[in-house]
């Protein structure tokens, strides 16, 4: 994956708290393979009317939001399920950074794994105030700074995530270089805590015991 250190483009405000992963992508779309493209699923039920047409009043659907790269939202963005599909929907729709007062922990990890920047700001209200209509913004990882119109603010992003985003690191590639350490750990664990390895000789095919019967 290509590294990312700076995003410059149109920012769109979604002035809502708790935009959870079920909003980002409803469950019914998640059986699709990624190759099908997930962009069309993004915020599907919030941004579309019952007949599936884009609601022209929804901020992301306005002409000024065309090609948007940054979303600015309230508190607890991406809370809920671990579905990485929520990140696929954002990335496939062209979003490169989300700015919010807080993020669901799993979403944040998923975002970084897909090159999407989760930028945490202390107060989102001034940004939302500037973005009554979509506008130009710049976000820089090195300086942890975000400029929207005339408003400049700092954002938080851990060093671990910043480094990974900038280098475009893929964890599997990195970890495959450490297989010896993992193998050594496994040997030690197996010697020191054999109980931690499942007893695959469980007693018979119907051995499941319901809870409360122990």
């Amino acid at each position: 994956m290509a590294g990312i250190s700076r995003v410059k483009g149109v920012a769109v405000a979604l002035a809502m708290d708790n935009i959870d992963t079920d909003q980002l992508i409803p469950a019914r779309f998640m059986s699709a393979p990624r190759s099908a493209g997930y962009g069309g699923f993004l915020l599907h039920d919030l941004r579309r009317t019952d007949d599936g047409a884009l609601d022209p009043a929804f901020p992301l659907n306005t002409p000024a939001a065309d090609g948007a790269k940054i979303l600015v939202a309230g508190r607890n963005f991406g809370s809920g399920s671990s579905r990485e599909a929520a990140v696929y929907a954002l990335v496939d729709a062209g979003i490169r950074a989300v700015v919010a007062e807080s993020f669901g922990d799993i979403f944040r990890g998923n975002a970084v794994n897909n090159g999407l920047i989760p930028a945490e700001v202390e107060r989102v209200a001034p940004l939302l105030g500037t973005l009554t209509t979509p506008g130009a913004a710049t976000l820089d990882i090195a300086t942890r700074s975000l400029t929207v119109g005339t408003v400049r603010t700092a954002f938080a992003l851990s060093d671990v995530f910043a480094k990974k985003l900038r280098n475009g690191w893929d964890d599997i590639d990195l970890t495959l270089g450490r297989l010896d350490a993992i193998a050594a750990f496994r040997r030690a664990r197996h010697e020191g805590a054999r109980w931690a390895f499942p007893n695959h000789n469980e007693s018979g095919p119907n051995a499941a015991q319901p809870e409360g019967h122990s």
Binding site: R83, I106, N110, N114, D171, L176
Partner: peptide, 12 residues
């Protein structure tokens, strides 16, 4: 964990 992490755990 998300799908990228699931793949990582499967592999390592």
């Amino acid at each position: 964990i998300g799908a990228t992490e699931v793949a990582h755990v499967l592999a390592t």
